[in-house]
């Protein structure tokens, strides 16, 4: 499928054996955006004040929009695959869809897969917690996405590059918004500082996974795809550290700046926390109970 055109008319980066890895990677990007969007959306109607309720819901919608773009691309990739290529990624394809007898689409990928077929970062599926936990996670992920999308903008796969270029404007605002909140709470009252510090202790062990390439990412790296999460770790740390300094927060003790001496991982390969199943049960209920239902 060299230089094939997908249904969006954009050329696809695809050395003969790279396509399945590209599909998995695209799913990973989509799942990360979708699951974080779903978690943040739980604040809808419950935000600390009306204005922040709207702000966090806006961010959810941005993330949902990003995930749609990625899912559409992943679906287009899959539908164009040869039988042989399909076989390599069929373990990510929802069983339910196979009975539908039509091309796969974005909704099938978002709403029909099982827990172990999702490739999102563990950090995104953790409960929303209190406001401190929500905004600290938003900072961690949006700062990460900022550098990740910056790399993606310049790769030769035109579709992913275009999605990244569009999304980075949104992500830039998410970084700004969450940074200000972290600074506000960290440098606020004793209570707000305590909560943020507690959120940090809770979330920090999940940050390591951001910078460990999954198997499909390694395959793409070897083929000169142009993105490598390992190379953005220093920028990310610098950004987070700058915010932490202003917020008078300290990195978790033990292991120096690295904080935790070990990190939780597995989400990018389909192994999830106990929270994931509940999230999916709620998110997928409608599509699984009323297959193909539309508004």
């Amino acid at each position: 499928m060299t230089d094939a055109q997908n249904s969006t008319g954009l050329s696809i980066f695809s050395p003969p054996e790279g396509a399945p890895a590209l599909f998995s990677y695209t799913l990973h990007l989509a799942d990360t955006a979708l699951i974080l969007g779903q978690r943040n959306s739980e604040w809808c109607g419950h935000g600390p004040v009306l204005e922040q309720d709207i702000a966090i819901t806006n961010i959810s919608l941005d993330l949902l929009g990003q995930s749609r773009n990625f899912y559409q691309y992943a679906a287009a990739l899959y539908n164009d695959f040869s039988t042989q290529e399909k076989e390599q990624v069929n373990h990510y394809i929802p069983r339910l869809w196979k009975a539908y007898n039509r091309e796969i689409n974005e909704d099938d990928l978002a709403f029909l897969r099982d827990e172990n077929q999702y490739l999102n970062l563990l950090l995104t599926e953790l409960p929303k917690g209190d406001w401190a936990q929500t905004i600290l996670r938003e900072l961690f992920i949006s700062a990460f996405q900022f550098y990740q999308y910056s790399q993606l903008q310049n790769i030769s796969d035109a579709a992913l590059a275009a999605i990244a270029e569009k999304s980075i404007k949104e992500v830039t605002y998410h970084v700004r918004w969450s940074s200000e909140w972290v600074i506000r709470l960290g440098d606020g009252t004793a209570e707000s500082n305590r909560r943020l510090q507690q959120a940090l202790t809770e979330l920090w062990p999940y940050t390591g996974e951001l910078f460990i390439p999954a198997s499909y990412e390694m395959q793409l790296i070897k083929k000169g795809f142009g993105t490598d999460v390992r190379s953005i770790k220093n920028n990310w740390l610098k950004k987070v550290e700058a915010v932490f300094t202003e917020a008078t927060l300290s990195f978790p003790s033990g292991g120096g700046r690295e904080g935790a001496s070990w990190y939780q991982q597995g989400g990018k390969e389909g192994q999830h926390t106990e929270y994931m199943g509940y999230l999916l049960a709620e998110m997928q209920y409608l599509q699984k109970t009323f297959p193909n239902v539309v508004w």
Binding site: H46, W131, R184, T189
Partner: peptide, 17 residues
């Protein structure tokens, strides 16, 4: 669903400088 007691929710953040 989604409601959490005040002492656990984010509602006390407003008491900052």
């Amino acid at each position: 669903y989604g409601d959490i007691p005040d002492q656990q929710s984010g509602s006390s953040i407003s008491s900052r400088p």
